[in-house]
Amino acid sequence: MKLDMEKYKKIRQAQANGARTIDELKEMTDIVIENDEERKEVEKVLQNACKCKNVSVEEVAQAVKNGADTVEKVMEATGAGSGCGRCKAGVIPSIIENKK
Protein backbone atom coordinates (compact mmCIF):
# COMPACT_ATOMS: atom_id res chain seq x y z
CA MET A 1 0.00 0.00 0.00
CA LYS A 2 1.17 3.48 -0.79
CA LEU A 3 0.00 6.58 1.02
CA ASP A 4 -1.77 9.16 -1.05
CA MET A 5 0.36 12.22 -1.78
CA GLU A 6 -1.74 14.53 0.40
CA LYS A 7 -1.20 12.39 3.50
CA TYR A 8 2.47 11.95 2.68
CA LYS A 9 2.96 15.72 2.44
CA LYS A 10 1.16 16.27 5.76
CA ILE A 11 3.36 13.68 7.45
CA ARG A 12 6.56 15.22 6.09
CA GLN A 13 5.41 18.70 7.13
CA ALA A 14 4.63 17.44 10.62
CA GLN A 15 8.09 15.82 10.70
CA ALA A 16 9.61 19.17 9.81
CA ASN A 17 7.72 20.57 12.79
CA GLY A 18 9.09 17.90 15.11
CA ALA A 19 6.64 14.97 14.88
CA ARG A 20 8.42 11.64 15.39
CA THR A 21 5.53 9.41 16.49
CA ILE A 22 2.00 8.71 15.31
CA ASP A 23 0.63 10.35 18.45
CA GLU A 24 2.63 13.53 17.74
CA LEU A 25 1.50 13.38 14.11
CA LYS A 26 -2.14 13.17 15.17
CA GLU A 27 -1.69 16.14 17.51
CA MET A 28 -0.26 18.25 14.68
CA THR A 29 -2.51 17.23 11.78
CA ASP A 30 -5.99 16.11 10.87
CA ILE A 31 -4.70 12.82 9.44
CA VAL A 32 -6.95 9.81 9.93
CA ILE A 33 -5.20 6.47 9.70
CA GLU A 34 -7.65 4.11 8.03
CA ASN A 35 -6.23 0.69 8.94
CA ASP A 36 -3.21 -1.27 10.19
CA GLU A 37 -1.63 -1.38 6.76
CA GLU A 38 -1.80 2.40 6.46
CA ARG A 39 -0.47 2.74 10.03
CA LYS A 40 2.59 0.73 9.01
CA GLU A 41 3.15 2.98 6.00
CA VAL A 42 2.85 6.10 8.17
CA GLU A 43 5.35 4.64 10.64
CA LYS A 44 7.78 3.96 7.77
CA VAL A 45 7.56 7.59 6.65
CA LEU A 46 8.04 8.85 10.22
CA GLN A 47 11.17 6.72 10.61
CA ASN A 48 12.68 8.00 7.37
CA ALA A 49 14.50 11.33 7.23
CA CYS A 50 15.59 11.17 3.59
CA LYS A 51 13.56 9.10 1.18
CA CYS A 52 15.94 9.48 -1.77
CA LYS A 53 18.96 8.12 0.08
CA ASN A 54 16.96 5.93 2.49
CA VAL A 55 18.45 7.52 5.60
CA SER A 56 16.54 7.04 8.83
CA VAL A 57 15.68 9.66 11.41
CA GLU A 58 17.77 7.60 13.84
CA GLU A 59 20.84 7.79 11.56
CA VAL A 60 20.51 11.57 11.29
CA ALA A 61 19.93 11.90 15.05
CA GLN A 62 23.06 9.81 15.69
CA ALA A 63 25.08 12.04 13.35
CA VAL A 64 23.80 15.08 15.27
CA LYS A 65 24.78 13.46 18.58
CA ASN A 66 28.21 12.87 17.06
CA GLY A 67 28.62 16.58 16.28
CA ALA A 68 26.90 17.15 12.93
CA ASP A 69 25.28 20.47 13.84
CA THR A 70 24.51 21.74 10.33
CA VAL A 71 22.63 20.33 7.37
CA GLU A 72 25.90 20.17 5.45
CA LYS A 73 27.59 18.12 8.19
CA VAL A 74 24.59 15.76 8.35
CA MET A 75 24.80 15.36 4.57
CA GLU A 76 28.49 14.55 4.83
CA ALA A 77 27.97 12.03 7.63
CA THR A 78 24.87 10.26 6.29
CA GLY A 79 24.24 11.19 2.66
CA ALA A 80 20.80 12.51 3.64
CA GLY A 81 19.81 15.53 1.62
CA SER A 82 22.04 14.75 -1.33
CA GLY A 83 19.21 13.50 -3.56
CA CYS A 84 16.26 15.77 -4.34
CA GLY A 85 17.09 17.98 -1.36
CA ARG A 86 13.57 18.40 0.06
CA CYS A 87 14.59 17.04 3.46
CA LYS A 88 17.30 19.73 3.73
CA ALA A 89 14.63 22.37 4.18
CA GLY A 90 12.46 20.62 6.74
CA VAL A 91 13.17 17.28 8.32
CA ILE A 92 16.96 17.50 8.72
CA PRO A 93 16.95 20.98 10.30
CA SER A 94 14.17 19.82 12.63
CA ILE A 95 16.22 16.85 13.78
CA ILE A 96 19.25 19.10 14.33
CA GLU A 97 17.17 21.64 16.26
CA ASN A 98 15.33 19.07 18.37
CA LYS A 99 18.27 16.67 18.63
CA LYS A 100 15.86 13.80 17.91
Rank of each mutant, 00 (worst) to 15 (best):
100 K>I: 09
57 V>E: 01
2 K>H: 14
60 V>P: 00
30 D>Y: 10
46 L>Y: 02
57 V>G: 01
58 E>A: 15
25 L>H: 03
67 G>S: 10
19 A>Y: 00
56 S>E: 08
14 A>K: 02
29 T>G: 06
4 D>Y: 13
43 E>L: 14
26 K>M: 12
30 D>A: 15
73 K>T: 12
9 K>I: 11
72 E>W: 10
38 E>R: 13
71 V>P: 00
15 Q>V: 05
29 T>R: 02
90 G>I: 15
44 K>P: 05
43 E>R: 07
44 K>F: 07
31 I>K: 03
77 A>C: 10
87 C>F: 01
87 C>D: 08
62 Q>K: 14
49 A>L: 05
82 S>G: 07
87 C>Y: 01
29 T>I: 12
57 V>W: 06
35 N>K: 02
72 E>C: 08
36 D>S: 13
100 K>Q: 11
39 R>E: 15
25 L>T: 03
75 M>L: 07
100 K>W: 08
60 V>Y: 04
21 T>K: 08
99 K>F: 07
18 G>E: 06
49 A>C: 09
58 E>T: 14
87 C>W: 05
33 I>L: 06
80 A>H: 06
80 A>G: 02
31 I>V: 14
18 G>K: 09
89 A>S: 14
8 Y>I: 10
68 A>D: 06
65 K>G: 10
37 E>W: 09
98 N>Y: 09
38 E>C: 09
25 L>D: 07
7 K>Y: 11
4 D>G: 03
87 C>R: 04
12 R>C: 08
28 M>Y: 05
18 G>P: 04
35 N>Q: 03
17 N>C: 06
76 E>I: 10
95 I>M: 05
89 A>H: 13
40 K>S: 11
67 G>F: 00
55 V>M: 04
69 D>K: 15
81 G>D: 04
3 L>E: 03
59 E>G: 00
4 D>N: 14
93 P>G: 03
53 K>W: 01
26 K>D: 06
87 C>H: 11
11 I>V: 12
21 T>A: 03
62 Q>H: 02
63 A>P: 09
62 Q>G: 03
80 A>W: 04
36 D>P: 08
86 R>V: 13
52 C>S: 14
20 R>Q: 03
67 G>E: 09
29 T>V: 11
72 E>Y: 13
37 E>Q: 15
50 C>Y: 11
77 A>D: 06
59 E>Q: 15
45 V>Q: 01
15 Q>N: 10
6 E>A: 15
96 I>P: 07
23 D>R: 15
12 R>H: 07
100 K>N: 14
91 V>Q: 06
62 Q>A: 14
89 A>Q: 11
14 A>H: 03
75 M>E: 08
